[in-house]
Design a protein around this nucleic acid. Structure first.
Lengths: 177, 177
DNA sequence: ACAAAGCCGACCCGCTGAGTCGGGATTTAC
DNA sequence: GTAAATCCCGACTCAGCGGGTCGGCTTTGT
């Protein structure tokens, strides 16, 4: 069993965004450089993240990506599913829920993998981006804030998260450049 | 994340052997037929199981395979490792223990996957073949017992078991004659 | 107008998972 | 001693896919 680079890179991106929470959109180029990952490839992944409504995008110059919800409300299971599809696939079963087993009654391995699946899902759903971003320590994110877009983006994000209340940004302004 | 057919088939074989515990060697052909799996492919898998000392083999006519230890003493983590290699691989890290991370200090995803790894290992090591064989229910195994070989095999298995408990049974990397 | 971003579809390419094949070595039954 | 059943083993194939790259749009700030 192995973890795809999709999952790894995708989570790295998400963590990077989590660290930059409240600082307006972060360009993929910035993330790619800082994490030393292939920009063109990240574009694909982050597209999936956007389709899964985990991140919001802002187009045009000084655009970029940001988390669609507060980092604490995004669990890793969401991320993994968006990036890699079902948490656990196996030939015997089919989808994420391993219901469609080919050998209905006497499948000897069914509940084994069911158990594995649950354990996996538990571990992933029990962790959110905020935790990961913290535990990884390090500086928040080395980026220049584009002030103009912050307010705009905040509105967009607020709209996206619909009912959630915006919380105080961790590091609002750091125009170091 | 997905489960390879190696793992699935391999465990099916082991469960089949577990059900036939004490009845002397079971031929691969029998298992392949009863489980509807490709015999030639199983040969490969079971060879790995043998190298990992999870099963013993008896050659010649009326030969076959049997568990090297009592089913209750074979955990799924052993099986998985024998069949699939490291429980969790990921690009960031390397081997089963994810020590060799490329980005030593600020790897944001490291402990995430460490956690996943532990959870996985826990789920697997907490289940043994006897449990699985039971939970799957069904008839023990539809096979004709070759009485002549049973006693002979029992002795062989006992010997193997003794040898196995004498040395560390985890990773047999030394040449075994 | 231009540059900096996101967006998107097409393409490429080597690796590996999932088998197959053919033959050899062992053992038992007749 | 020959045949049959079995394990044993190395070589081979083959499709799919993970892991990217490329080129070209569209959107937007200055």
């Amino acid at each position: 069993m192995k973890i795809s680079t999709r999952a790894e890179y995708g989570i790295r991106v998400l963590v990077a965004l989590a660290r930059a929470e409240g600082s307006g959109p972060v360009s993929l180029t910035a993330v790619a450089r800082s994490e030393k990952l292939p920009h063109a490839y990240l574009e694909q992944l982050v597209a999936d993240l956007r389709r899964a409504r985990l991140v919001t995008s802002t187009r045009g110059k000084a655009g970029g990506y940001a988390l669609a919800r507060p980092a604490a409300e995004i669990s890793l299971v969401d991320a993994m599913r968006a990036l890699d599809g079902p948490i656990l696939e196996m030939p015997c079963a089919g989808a994420d829920n391993l219901e469609t087993c080919a050998r209905p009654q006497d499948c000897s391995v069914h509940d084994v993998f069911q158990r594995v699946h649950e354990s996996l899902e538990g571990a992933l759903s029990g962790t959110n981006l905020a935790e990961v971003a913290l535990s990884a320590g390090g500086p928040p994110f080395p980026l220049a804030v584009r002030r103009k877009r912050v307010a705009e983006h905040a509105a967009r994000a607020a709209a996206a998260r619909a009912a959630a209340s915006a919380q105080a940004p961790t590091r609002p302004s750091q125009p170091a450049s």
